[in-house]
Amino acid sequence: MEQNEKLSFHFDVDGNDFTSAGEASVKVKKLMRQLGFSPELTRRVSIAMYEGEINMVIHANGGVADVYVDEDCLRVVLADEGPGIADIETAMQEGFSTAPDNIRALGFGAGMGLPNMKNYSDEMKIDSIVGQGTTIELKFKVN
């Protein structure tokens, strides 16, 4: 984790170890508590980021996560160099999943990750190129 001047945080998400997936989100949750964000916002940000982190480990062999604290909003940017999402509209449907059976056995892959990220954030933008990777930006308004 590196902290820059404009209050942003950078995390590397290790794609080789499902056991450690979510470590960055745990850190962000702690940081948000320390920075005095409301429990409700902290919960929404950490759940959405956790889903994103899990997705990167399942589908893209990891990636990077950046959290930017702006004056009126908090942004989480998750970027990977995985296979990309061919049909974003279909991927956004609740229950649609391409996760393999071994991931389902671990309690994930119900096709709720992306819809959940959308539900818990105020704005979600997905940029994906098949064969190159996916970048997801989540925005949360800070009142």
């Binding site: 956790y50 309690g107 994930f108 096709g111 709720m112």
Partner: peptide
């Protein structure tokens, strides 16, 4: 639940 995806949702 055994499905963490459902818990999160």
């Amino acid at each position: 639940s055994d499905m963490m995806s459902d818990v999160l949702a």
